[in-house]
Amino acid sequence: MMERHLLSGVEPDPARDAGHPEPPPRVGFFTDTSVCIGCKACEVACKEWNAIPEDGLSLTGMSYDNTQGLGASTWRHVAFIEQTVSEETVPEPQGRTQLPLVDGTAPAAPQEAGETTRWLMSSDVCKHCTHAACLDVCPTGSLFRTEFGTVVVQEDICNGCGYCVPACPYGVIEQRPSDGRAFKCTMCYDRLSAGQEPACAKACPTESIQFGPLDELRERAALRVDQLHEAGVSGARLYGDDPDGGVGGDGAFFLLLDKPEVYGLPPDPVVTTRDLPAMWKHAGAAAVSLLGGFALSFALPALARRRGTR
């Protein structure tokens, strides 16, 4: 059986444990949603660079989000949340010009005194989990850990079994209906290999998407969250940065301004394979009890007959 720490818990160097002898430092994304302006440049850059097919045009009524979620043909997704909140939640403009959101006419949602509207935007992506359930359960070895510590699907190996899809605790990876195989963000493996930063980070005009060595990003993120708390943005919190977390920390983590589930993220995800040793144990016991049940079923009539003939 596998060592337990390979399935869950703190894992400082996933690339080395995956068999890369001298891996470069693990890289990732720190997505600071507090500066995201919802321009969707990342979505577009990702589609362009990776030549991802069009996957439906629809108007959803979900604020400015007509993309709806990550999927086989959407590897970056910008979420838009409109909230009515108390005025104190929104920090002072600090000298910036404030323009009214709605001019003269009645606001869309009825507001009480002291309330204001805030707009949350967040660019979501595959988390490149330290303990990636998608990778663990893939039966073909199509999903693998790169030397950069990221998680990538090999299109020429995937047979479309679809097991990775329900295994991902974030609902990221998906099969493309027209094709059958599973697709997701590669963290621009081709660009990383050429020493370039991923297309989405490159395109982001506000540096909401920051790319770099994961250790550096974690330090920067801790500073940023403190800075926001000092500025009075008490709802700021890091999501997925903790190496102690249920998936051993995300390679792509976030600074959020509200609870994760408000953005469509699971509040406390756990890699399903953490419990795999327990599952195999119970499956073994169940198999043995099946054997035992039949043994008993053959023994009982024999006993009864013997007693009957006696």
Binding site: P139, T140, G141, C158, N159, G160, C161, G162, D179, G180
Partner: peptide, 26 residues
């Protein structure tokens, strides 16, 4: 029949992965 790419069924036996119940099952 349920595979997205049924012709690639043999890939199921490409590796033996104890972390993948589908691999073990295959």
């Amino acid at each position: 029949h349920d595979l997205g790419v049924p012709s690639r069924f043999p890939n199921m036996l490409r590796v033996l992965k104890p972390t993948s119940p589908m691999s073990v099952g295959s």
